[in-house]
Simulated scan of single mutants.
Amino acid sequence: MTLTPRVSSAAVATSAAAALLLLTACSGAPPQDDAPADERLDVVTAAYPLQYVTERIAGDDATATSALSAGTDVHEAELAPSQALRLSRADLVVALPGLQAGVDAALSDAAPERVVDVTEAAALDGDDLHFWLDPLRLADVGDEVAGALAAADPDRADGYRQRAAQLRTDLTALDQRYADGLAPCRGASLVTSHEAFGYLADRYGLQQLGVAGLDPEVEPTPARLRAVVEQVQDTGVRTLYFETEATDAVTRALASRLGTATGVLDPMESAREPGADLVATADANLRALTDGLVCS
């Protein structure tokens, strides 16, 4: 597989660290961390939604961990040398190229034995990578991960497939809750601090408008701010949403100027502790949407 990571200082640092560690390993120096104590697959994932899916499908038959430490900003992630080495030694890596430049660079240098790129299964639309905000796309990725686990560990294939089927059931139920809850809101304007919610908006008939674009680190232009103000005034938007993982200063200032309420949505980008419940977070997002959107 060919990866095309975005160039950044984090990527350069990670690439150098990975190369140094691999050269050290090849020279015969003793490894700095112990190999897994059991025979289970060691799976490393490159984003929290992929971690959640892999944990659910792996169950007790494989270990699933994130390449990043909990709380790491997905857009500026820089792998420590120990993280790059762990990535290189994994039995399987579940990746979404383009989301994290540091992880992409480490994968390109380290060339793990097996890498599953979920891009095709997620059916990405343009440059927006936040596919997991559409539950059914995430279920499709779960099937892809189950297939990769089964191929790498045939003796436990039935368990992987059964747990993937249960995950699909849970995500289909989540999708139905969203469809029911947002049915009265179809056509409503969803104004967010950055455009991370396009897949959600498309699936449930909302009109997303971000104060910033896809990259939350890029300051909005005056023209973009004027467009947001006009949209709010023309459509009677009651709530401007900022995010748990992005600065909210501009969005709060706009809300104060326009006299609207503010709400919080979680784009579920940053790394989480093992076992964090994506479905519960998605349900909290649904409550915030039904509370704040203009619905009939």
Rank of each mutant, 00 (worst) to 15 (best):
A90S: 09
G263H: 09
E78L: 06
L138P: 03
D170K: 00
G181R: 04
V294S: 12
P5A: 06
G102F: 05
L167N: 01
D180N: 10
P31E: 09
Q231K: 14
D109T: 15
H130M: 05
T239C: 08
G59Y: 02
P216W: 03
R224H: 07
S27G: 10
A37H: 10
D34Q: 11
P154N: 10
V211R: 02
A18D: 06
D140Q: 12
D175N: 10
L99G: 01
L96M: 13
G213Y: 02
V191M: 02
R287D: 15
A37Q: 11
A19D: 09
A284I: 02
G59N: 06
A152N: 11
A80T: 14
R86I: 01
A90G: 05
D277C: 08
D61Q: 10
A47E: 14
G28I: 03
A227E: 14
V250D: 00
A253S: 12
A212V: 05
V145F: 04
A284L: 10
T2S: 13
A29R: 11
T221P: 05
T4E: 15
L124T: 05
R203P: 10
R177S: 14
A150D: 07
A151V: 09
L209A: 09
S88F: 03
V12D: 14
Q207N: 15
S82N: 09
L265I: 04
S8F: 05
A249W: 05
R287H: 12
S270I: 13
D143K: 14
L182A: 05
A13Q: 13
D175S: 07
L136K: 08
D42Y: 04
L293A: 01
P184M: 04
V74C: 01
L50S: 10
L209M: 11
Q162E: 15
D60I: 00
R161G: 05
E120A: 15
L129M: 08
L182P: 01
A150Y: 06
L182M: 02
L293E: 04
A148P: 01
T45N: 10
R252Q: 12
G181Q: 03
L190W: 01
A80N: 05
S189L: 05
E269W: 00
E39T: 13
V229D: 05
Q208R: 11
V228I: 13
A227D: 11
D283Q: 13
V7A: 15
P216N: 06
D109R: 14
L286Y: 05
R168T: 12
E120T: 14
A101P: 09
E55R: 09
A255Q: 04
L289V: 07
R168D: 08
L206K: 08
Y178V: 05
T235P: 00
D266L: 09
S15L: 14
S66C: 04
